[in-house]
């Protein structure tokens, strides 16, 4: 296919200095994909539950064994992933209303949202007494 040499080229990730809005934008995609995987696991869990106590025992055994630590870590990661995607998703909806495009404020909100997701995750797992 012929290409037009006058078309503008966007420098890719390696050419940019990392900054907050860039990190939050990439994290929004990454957490979206992570949430997809999380939703697959929640669906599988619901099927195991519906299959009855004998089948559900497989999940409970996994959770009690050494794999249980990995499951807990995955759930902590999932908590962060959902928290971040939710907070940043609200920001996307605000953007759709045409609000919040100033450079300084965008950087600040990126940092606040990333910190907020960490605080929510820590709050649920530490203060909630689950860990």
């Amino acid at each position: 296919m012929a290409t037009n040499s006058t078309r503008p080229l966007s420098p890719h990730l390696q050419n940019w200095r990392w900054h907050a809005t860039m990190a939050s934008s990439i994290l929004h995609r990454a957490t979206g994909v992570a949430n997809y995987i999380g939703a697959v696991l929640v669906s599988v869990w619901l099927v195991l539950l519906a299959a009855g106590p004998e089948t559900y025992a497989v999940w409970e055994e996994l959770n009690a064994g050494p794999v249980g630590i990995l499951i807990t870590l995955a759930l902590v990661g999932f908590t962060f992933s959902v928290s971040f995607h939710l907070l940043n998703g609200i920001r996307h909806l605000v953007w759709d209303a045409g609000i919040g495009f100033d450079a300084k404020g965008s950087n600040l909100r990126s940092i606040l949202i990333m910190a907020g997701a960490v605080i929510i995750t820590a709050g649920i797992w530490i203060a909630g007494g689950l860990l």
Partner: peptide, 17 residues
Amino acid sequence: FVAAGLWIAVLYSVLAL
């Protein structure tokens, strides 16, 4: 297919319970 398949699986599981 994944989204549709999971939706049917979730629908069935919840209604069965």
